[in-house]
Every structure is written in C-alpha cells, then in structure tokens.
Design a protein around this nucleic acid. Structure first.
Length: 472
RNA sequence: GGCGGCGUACCCAAGUGGUAAGGGAGCAGUCUGCAAAACUGCCAUUCAGCGGUUCGAACCCGCUCGCCGCCUCCA
C-alpha cells in the first residue's frame, strides 16, 4: 500500500511518489526565533516529526531539514526593546526551542540551517532573479515582481487582481506594484547587515527559506511543510521566487500544512493574550500527554486546547502504561519476545498510509489495551502469545508516534516529578504497611484515614490480590 | 468583498458509497472490608437542516443555517 497524502497544491489526496525513493527530501518551516515557542510551534514540529519518522519507517531514505529564521523585523524590534544584540536574542530562543522540542520527544532534523548562515546563497538567488527579470532593485532594496510569473497564486488559490482589490497590503513607494515583496532590505544603522551588490542589507522574509531549502536539499524537493497560515503569503512567495530562479516546476512536489491549535476555541494571538507557551503547558502535564493530545486529531484539523482535553490525554497515557505494567507483572513471559505480525499490524499501517492518520492509530492502540486487560482478567499466562503480540504492536507504533515508548516505571517517575509529588516513595510504603496492619486487625477506620491522607497528597492506592499498589 | 475549511453522542475524535472506531464522563453489575483499578452491560436507528443521485449516503451533488481560517506579522 502506497502512502497517500493531502497536497495543498492540488487540494487532493495523492499517492506519494518521491522524485527519488532512495533520497527523499523534506523541508519544514521552523520558528522565527524572537520569543518562547508556543503550543502551535509544538504541533507543527510534532506533526512533521511523526511524518519524518513514518517515512523512514516505510523504508524511504529521508533527509529532513527544518530552519531557524534568525533575522527578521520582529527579532530586531525585540532585541532593541531588550537592549541586546540580535544574535544574542536569536541564540537564546533557538536554545529554548531546541529544549522544548527535546522534551516533547521531537527528534532532531538532519539539517537545521539558519538564515544568517545562508546569506551568500540568498544574495546569489536575489542577483539571479534580477538577471532573469523577475526582480528589481529599488535603492538599497530588492523586490520580487509578482506579475512576472503567470501562475502566481497557485498554492493559495488567489489571483493578483483580487488581492489588489483587497487593498490590505502596505503602500510602499519603492515598490513598482504594492503586491511585490522584498527579497533584500537595505539596513538601517544598528541593524544586522551584510555587504551586498545593493549595499549593506539583510534578507527579506521569504527568500531565506528558498535559499536554505535549495542549499540543503536541492532545487526540487519532495515535501515542504509548515503551518496553515504560511500558505499565503510565505509559501506562495517561496514557490514564485524558487521556480522563477530554477525554471523548474514544481519547487516542492507535495505541500503539507498542519492545522492550528486554538485555545478554548479562540485563535492564539498577542492581542487576546492567550498564547500558550510550551513551557507553561509542560508544567503540570507530562510531555507525553501533550504529544498524545496533539496526535489525537488529524494533523490538518484545527484542535482546541482546554484543560479538559489535556486531562483526557493524561488519563489515556496513564491507562496505557498501567496496562503495560500489568502485563509485565502478571505475564512476564509476554515481554521481550519480538512478535512482529504483519497481519495484525496492517490496520495501523493502513491508517498511517492514509495521510498520516494518527488519530485512527491511537484508536486502534486503545482497542488493544482493552483486549490486553481482558486477556489478563481471563488468566494472563494462558494468553502469553497474544499479550506479547499486543506489546510488540504498541512498541512498533510507538517508534513513529513518539509516545508510549518508555518503560512504565520511567513514565511514572517522570509523572511524579511533573505533578510535584511531595511525599517520598519510602514514606508512602511505610504508610501502606501501617494501613495493611490496620486492615489485618479490621481497624478500617484507621486504614481509610491513611488512604484518604495519601489521596489528598495525590497518591492513589489499589489493593490488588498480590499486595497494595500505589500511583501518583 | 474574494478564497478555503469545518459541523458525527454530554465532551474529545476516527470513519468520506455497503449499514456509526477509540478515549473521557455518566449509569448498572462483577471484584473489594469499603474503595481504586480492570472487566461486563447500557449510553448516536443516526452523522447541522432540507432536497437530489444511487439497490444503498455521515460519505457524492445542490441549497439553507451555523462556526472558523486566510486575504496584514503569525506554526
């Protein structure tokens, strides 16, 4: 079964046929590093992380690049506000972004180019576009002329005349046409600047991605991704300038765009003050819960972040690890045996092949979790074969989902740290013994008192046939 | 105004032509000293509404209503 994916360029789900299956290329737009990254950045990164993992899982040899845009108006403004250099500011937020991604289990892309390290290529591209007649210098600025390429608008479905009528574009006398966009901007004193044929200056917004992309992956790539909002103007402009430069169409064979994360049904925005940083989301929740939350909907759908939806994800992760732990305990012989069964795994592959339908995969996994518990209730050891199959299945899927890949005890350790459990495991064990003494002498009042006390501190007790278990 | 998307149970969410996955919540039962967890059963004759195509539609077409995104920086 081939992979099918939704291509924003054609508006259809298409079979994925890479240019060269032995060397698949993917580029995802990374953050502009001027502030802490938020849950929306996390969604984009997690989506393309899963896609890259799955392409590799499917047998493609993939080169995946994700950039940092580290020169930009917003960075300059912020750096001025804080009275630090642009480099220092960018460096700080690149580091923070990397840390956030690592905690969410996002693997490092093969290449992580920075705009400021690709200036030579940007200048070369800009010069070439002028030579080819697609761009023009105006003072110290260089603009791309959108009307020069007749298929401008093919990604976003816009046409130039309607955009013109929209009149929401800024008026700039230096431009021949209000819709033209800057490839190169002459810099004011104090701004980051590089020497160029047009004087000291810096790149415009869209050109850096074309440059980094070509630099790392070549003139035609297989997959180009990013958030939905980048379709216009960013990706539209990337297509225009790249195709004008190379003369090759298409620049990217498949365009993939992830949906937004809304906060309680509202778009995150500075004016609403509802931007949820990854770090804030990470206090009080395990990274795995956040990742599961993000993967519980299809990557193209909008999702709504609420306290409750996170709690749901948290419960689901707990349920899964609790079940794995139970299998380990009640049927140890199920563990360790690799039991890859194509037949049983087929529905999961089918779901992933269908435009990376992680929500479906998660549904299928939880069906297996229910089955595992039922088998254990019926007498685990008789079902070792079946249980080991389920364990293998979860392990296999966790490889590309990036969740459910820990040992249960590691997960619980992390969870205790996240919720800030004050009481020590030793103290808990001591109280459990005390309670079990009380239970033996039928002093249930005392026993319940201890249980209630622990519950108030976030510790839940379970009296199982083979002893009392606790969890946070 | 232009372009695009969405509307599936109390909540979240798959399913896109063959008769409604999964999770959470809730209710009842098994187990338990009581709980918790797990399991079992119940919980959408129906997929915003109305028409149409079809042997058959949540899935295709048309219209209506509602919500949202992009068109300006944005993941």
């Amino acid at each position: 079964m081939p992979i099918r994916l939704y291509n924003s360029l054609t508006g259809k789900k298409e079979e994925f046929v890479p240019k060269d299956p032995a060397n698949v290329t993917m580029y995802a737009c990374g953050p502009t590093v001027y502030a802490m990254s938020h849950i929306g950045h996390a969604r984009s990164a997690v989506s393309f992380d899963v896609i890259s993992r799955y392409l590799r899982y499917s047998g493609f040899r993939l080169t995946y690049a994700r950039n940092y845009t580290d020169v930009d108006d917003k960075i300059i403004n912020r750096a001025n506000e804080e009275d630090v250099s642009c480099d220092e500011l960018a460096e700080r937020y690149i580091k923070a972004f990397d840390e956030d991604m690592a905690s969410l289990g996002v693997l490092l892309p093969d290449a992580r180019p920075r705009a400021t390290q690709t200036i030579g290529r940007i200048i070369a591209l800009t010069s070439a576009l002028i030579e080819k007649g697609f761009a023009y210098a105006s003072g110290a600025d260089v603009f791309y002329s959108v009307r020069k390429k007749k298929d401008y608008g093919k990604l976003s479905g816009k046409n130039i005349d309607e955009l013109e009528a929209g009149a929401r574009v800024d008026v700039n006398e230096a431009k021949a046409d209000p819709l033209d966009f800057a490839l190169w901007k002459g810099s004011k004193p104090g701004e980051p600047a590089w020497n160029s044929p047009w004087g000291m200056g810096r790149p415009g917004w869209h050109i850096e991605c074309s440059a980094m992309c070509m630099d790392r992956l070549g003139e035609t790539i297989d997959i180009h991704g990013g958030g939905r909002d980048l379709i216009f103007p960013h990706h539209e402009n990337e297509i225009a300038q790249s195709e004008a430069y190379t003369g090759k169409t298409p620049f990217a064979r498949y365009w993939l765009h992830n949906g937004f994360v809304n906060i309680a049904k509202e778009k995150m925005s500075k004016s609403l003050g509802n931007i949820l940083n990854i770090r804030d989301a990470l206090t009080g929740h395990t990274p795995e819960a956040i990742r599961l939350f993000l993967l519980s909907s299809h990557y193209r759908s909008p999702i709504d972040y609420t306290q409750e939806s996170l709690k749901d994800a948290e419960n689901a992760v707990d349920r899964l690890y609790k079940t794995i732990e139970r299998v380990d305990r009640e049927c140890p012989e199920a563990n360790g045996k690799e039991h890859r069964d194509e037949q049983w795994f087929a529905p999961i592959i089918e779901a992933m092949d269908d435009d990376f339908n992680t929500a479906m995969v998660i549904g299928l996994l939880f069906k297996e979790v229910s089955l595992a518990n039922r088998l254990l209730d019926e007498g685990g050891r008789d079902n070792a074969q079946e249980l080991s199959r389920i364990l293998s299945l979860i392990k296999e899927a966790s490889g590309f989902l990036g969740v459910f890949d820990k040992a249960p005890e590691d997960y619980y350790k992390l969870r205790r740290a996240v919720i800030g459990l004050k009481i020590s495991p030793d103290e808990i064990e001591r109280l459990i013994s005390e309670r079990n003494e009380a239970r033996k002498t039928k002093d249930f009042k005392r026993a319940d008192e201890i249980r209630r006390g622990l519950l108030e501190q976030g510790v839940v007790l379970e009296d199982a046939p083979d002893g009392t278990k606790w969890s946070a």
